[in-house]
Each structure stands twice: as structure tokens, then as C-alpha cells.
Design a protein around this nucleic acid. Structure first.
Lengths: 346, 346
DNA sequence: GTGAAAGCGCTAACAT
DNA sequence: ATGTTAGCGCTTTCAC
């Protein structure tokens, strides 16, 4: 019997204090019963369940998800990659998704791509290292290597915040060009004939670019003039103010403005106030995002309300449905739409 | 030799396509050499390194972090628990921390406590399940159970965004009551004698409460009157406007206002504009946060700039220093301070 | 309903 | 510098 004891025991490294075996021992059942209890409580007898519960409480047992994930070849983590959580839009989606996933005891592993496809690629690689239950990316444009990495994967891959391009798998979001169209049509309907788009960071933010393109297209279709004035940096009220001043200098006839987002729009409103440009009488202003200040400013801002939290909830729902299951049903597109909030600025 | 082959091989479940052994095989080295190469490349010969690199590229190998974490009894994950990433302050910290941790190939696992200690407790439990390299909490107040869970832990526990209370381990942040003091002293120095604090969600946001308390204390010390008008909901410009109207109704003599944060201050400025209350002539307004709009609004907002990104960077630095190492050196407090941005609203 | 046993893919002590 | 080996703590057959 002791023939197996050939060598002295090695110095083992520090390990987890309380394991499933400890719980099993205290509850007088086998480890596999404890495991079963943790995953499908209804499959375990009432007596055993009680004993196990008690043991877990007493020992203050915390299961080791890495061991579980390794054995099961899939973890209770969901990877989400967004440009930045500093951006209120993505913060909203991350937050609502997190809340929805909590019920399934799924944890979010967060990555910031900073609008960089290379960065995204690296993050996808790191994400896959965790054998996540699903992976969520922002937008539809990714590097070839990223696509290759994700092509062979057996978990749901969800792309959010963009629709209308080639998808890897399911996409949840809306058509940003349609946003541009809706804003242009709204302004034209309000009698505006000299339109202008105030853009920020459009060389990186594809979706802002799409809104701009839709705006220009709709204006052209209606036979109305439309200009673009833009800035390379991240949208902010400060840049919005600068852009407005510049826009009125270059195109003084402008009477209707669409903005990259509400930060830009807010800055534009501030500038109008300083320049004594009457909004909406002389100039109509429309934003994008319906941020927390948009209903409160002077005048209240007409804007597009995207469905950032709905996107998060839908993504979470999809992940739940496919938990442990395989890939999604194929490249489905879930359109969460957007609504125009008509307020006094237009 | 084949005596060990007693039973037929079982049906194994689907597993990882490419493993470290595959890489080792292709590179003609042992798996442990591959492991070593991945963790300490400088300890492996140039020849082997090359062969391994090539094999990894060729097979498109993605290491399994769960297996690694299990074997090493610690993972390359860092748990961070914040009230909500919708809050720009915490979004900033999360974002800067993420950027700093990337160099160490550490991933952030995010949790939202929603200002609820019970929620936090549950999240701490889930966080520990991942055997993270460190755990970061927001604030200094936690449930007794949370403290108990974290007392026996051998990884760095970092509390952020608050100083001045009992710490679990190292804390990084600043004294919020000192913010209140600084704002009160600033207003008094500007000749204001009827002060008022506009607060939001102070029953949950302890740090806002501390700022308010510091403000009142400093006013009292200077023999200046100070009132509080508050709202139970999350801070927003809309609530800021409401609060300002209410404040001037209840305390028309007010000439200096401190706000819970810049959202409230912005709403207050909007309301002043509508009411034709001259800022700063008739009323001085000071915010907290120096958010993206604060320098751009009318008039530009005097506010406190906290060091949200510095907090994130410092936390990341601390984690790096103690990677693999044990606990932190004890309850040290790192004061990241804050600065008053004096602008035209005061 | 419960238990025994065989790994999941990797790390780290140890030996060479 | 590299290989051998023994697990890390759990899940999942499979047999009872």
C-alpha cells in the first residue's frame, strides 16, 4: 500500500484555505454531491442539501471559479470590449448589462479598445484566455486577425452599438446613418434650409461618421445645403463651443445644426448664448445621446435618445439564453432603434 | 505496462483546441519550457525561444488563464468594485487603472455596488472566487461580513476615493470633508456671508455627505450662516435646477452656493439664467468634479478637481509592486489631494 | 440520489 | 537551461 510513497512530499505552495472537499467532509457527503448541489440544488436530497448549506456557511466556503472553469472548459465570465467606459454611452451599456448578468452570477471582464483595432485584437486574445461564456465587442469593424480569432470560437460573439455592416455573429444596436437622416429630416421639417453638422473625432468614431453621412445624404436628397465642421479630438462642450464659433464664421447663413453628440451640442448652446445667437429662432440645434443635462439646459436640447441600456439588457438576455449552449443562431441583427426627443432647441 | 489500462477511455467533453503541450511538441521542447518562456522569456535560450514563438504563432495558441491561475493559486485578474461606472468619477478611475494594468497583462473584473453594502458583500464574495491578484473597493465603509471576508485574504486590498476613516489595508483618495472646508473658505474669502449647500443622494453617497459636513463646519467656524437643501435622487442637472429654485425660495438671502457635484452646479447655473440671477454678482456657485462641461459653461464654473485618474494609476502601481507578493505593508493612506479651479462663477 | 475516478491545462519544485 | 512530476480544486461521466 505504501509502495507509492516513493519520495518525500514536496513543499507545496500556499493554496485555498477551504475547498469543496472540506465542505463535503463536514457535511458527510462526497465532493461530487457538493458540486451537484452548487450547480443544481434541486437534484440533491433535502437532507444532503441542508447539511451542505450548513457546512458552507460554517466554513465560509468560497468556490474556486478557476478550478470550476477549467474542469468545465468554460467560465462564468463575460468579456466586454468598449472604446472607453469614460464615454457615457458605453458606461450605460456596461452598467445595464452588468445588472442583468448578475442574476446568472456572471461577471464582467472589461477591456478598453480606445477606438483602436490593434488594441482590440490584443484584448480579444486576452479575453479568450479566460474561456468566457460570451464575448461582446463594440461596433462592426475589426481587424482581420480579430475576425479570425473569433471565427473558431464556440461561444456567443455579440457586436453592439452598430448595425448595417458585416457581422461576426449577432449584432445589437441601431443604424447610425438613420440617426443622421432623422435629424436632417427633422430640421428640414422645422423649415431649416442651411444645415450643418458639427463633428468630433470622426476619423476614429465610425458611428459618429455614419451619423454625419446619413445627415448629409438626407439633406442632399431634400435638395438642402449641408456643411460639415469638425475637430479631431474627443467630443466635449469646449470643443462644441469652438466648433460653433468656427461654423458661424465659415457658414454664417446656417440655420440648423446637428451635433456629433450632446457634449458638442451643449458647447454649441453655450457659445450661442455668449454670441447672442437666438436658439431656436435664428439657429436650431439638435444633439445625440440625451445625456443627463440635455433636458435641463437652456433651451432644452432636442436630441436623439439611443437605447444604451436596452442594448446592454438585450446582450445579457442573449447570453443567458445561450449559457453553456453553443454559438448563436447566426448573424441575426437586433435593432434597438432610437427616438427623437423634440425639445425647445429646434 | 499496459496493466494500468483497466477501463475503456471515457467520452471526454470538448476541450481547448490548442494547448501548451501542442506548442511544446511542435517546438521540440517540454511543456514546462513553454510555460517558463511565457512567464520569464529571459530564462529560456534564444534557440528555444525562437522555436516556441514560431510554434505559438503557427498554432495560434491562446494560453488558458484558468489553468494557470489554478496551478499558481492566483490569477491575472484584478477585481474592482465601484458604486457605478455611470458615475463619471469612477469611470475615470476604472479607465485609468485599466490602462495602467494593461502593461502587466492584468484584466479588470468589474462590479457595481450601487451604493449598497449588501451588494458589495456579495460582489466581494464573487470577486474572491476568481483568486484575483488584488481587490479594489470604493470608500471605507463596508459591512462587517465584507470586512471579515477580506481580513483573511493574502492579496492587496485597496480602498479608493475616500480617506479619513478606518481602513482595511491601503487607501488611496482624499479627504472629502477637506473639500467642503476648502469650498466654504473660498466663498467666504470672496466675501460671501450667506452660504448654502445643494446636495443630492446624500443618504447613500457618504462622500457627498462628508463634503457637506466639512462645508458646514468651516462656515460655522468662520461665524457665517450655512444652510442645506437636498434631494434624495442621483445628482443631475435637472435636480440641480430644482434645488436652486427651492433654495432661493427658502433662503433668498443666499449669496454663495456649494454643490454636491458639477451636475448639480450646472443645473443651478441653468436655473439662475432662467431666473435672471446674476452669477457671480448676486450668487456665487462652486461645484465638485471639474467635469467635461465645467470650463465651458456660462459662466465657467469654479469647481474642485479631484484626482480620479491619479487614484486609478496609484492603485495600479501598488498592485504591480505587490504582484505575486503578499499583502500590502499595512494600512497606509495615499492622499491624492484635490485642487480648486477658480473660474468666473465665484 | 450519491460516490469514485479521471482528468481540465497549467505551474512550480526539484532534479538534471 | 531544460525536463520530470505532482498536483491546483473542481466537473463530469459512469456505476451503483
Amino acid at each position: 500500500m505504501d509502495a507509492a510513497r516513493r519520495k518525500p512530499p514536496r513543499n507545496r505552495r500556499k493554496m485555498q484555505s477551504v475547498t469543496m472537499s472540506d465542505v463535503a467532509g463536514l457535511a458527510n457527503v462526497s465532493p461530487s454531491t457538493v458540486s451537484l448541489f452548487l450547480r443544481k440544488p434541486e437534484a440533491v436530497s433535502a437532507t444532503a442539501s441542508q447539511a451542505i448549506s450548513r457546512a458552507i456557511d460554517k466554513l465560509n466556503y468560497v468556490p474556486n471559479l478557476m478550478a470550476g472553469g477549467l474542469a468545465a472548459a468554460s467560465s462564468r465570465a463575460v468579456s466586454i470590449l468598449v472604446p472607453s467606459v469614460r464615454n457615457a454611452f458605453f458606461a450605460e451599456t456596461v452598467s445595464s448589462m452588468q445588472a442583468a448578468l448578475k442574476k446568472q452570477r456572471l461577471q464582467l471582464i472589461l477591456g478598453h479598445t480606445e477606438y483602436d483595432e490593434h488594441e482590440e485584437e490584443e484584448l480579444v486574445r486576452m479575453a479568450l484566455s479566460w474561456a468566457p461564456a460570451a464575448i461582446v465587442l463594440t461596433g462592426l469593424s475589426h481587424s482581420a486577425a480579430t475576425r479570425r480569432l473569433l471565427a473558431n470560437v464556440t461561444i456567443p460573439v455579440i457586436e453592439i452599438w452598430e448595425l448595417g455592416g458585416p457581422q461576426i455573429d449577432t449584432a445589437i444596436g441601431f443604424h447610425h446613418d438613420q440617426v443622421g437622416v432623422a435629424v436632417a429630416e427633422h430640421l428640414i421639417q422645422q423649415g431649416r434650409r442651411n444645415l450643418l453638422f458639427l463633428g468630433a473625432r470622426m476619423h476614429q468614431d465610425r458611428r459618429a461618421k455614419q451619423r454625419c453621412d446619413g445627415f448629409l445624404r438626407a439633406a442632399k436628397a431634400a435638395g438642402v445645403s449641408a456643411q460639415v465642421v469638425e475637430h479631431p479630438d474627443t467630443a466635449s462642450a469646449e470643443i462644441g463651443s469652438m466648433l460653433l464659433v468656427e461654423a458661424l464664421r465659415l457658414h454664417p447663413e446656417t440655420d440648423g445644426i446637428a451635433c456629433s453628440n450632446d457634449h458638442i451640442a451643449l458647447g454649441a448652446l453655450f457659445a450661442c448664448e455668449r454670441l447672442k445667437v437666438a436658439v431656436p429662432e435664428r439657429l436650431a440645434v439638435v444633439g445625440f445621446g440625451d445625456l443627463s443635462f440635455s433636458a435641463a439646459c437652456n433651451p432644452p436640447l432636442t436630441t436623439i435618445r439611443p437605447s444604451g441600456d436596452l442594448i446592454g439588457r438585450e446582450a445579457a438576455r442573449l447570453i443567458e439564453e445561450h449559457l453553456g449552449g453553443e454559438k448563436l443562431d447566426g448573424p441575426r441583427a437586433i435593432d434597438t432603434r432610437f427616438t427623437l426627443q423634440h425639445r425647445r432647441s429646434s
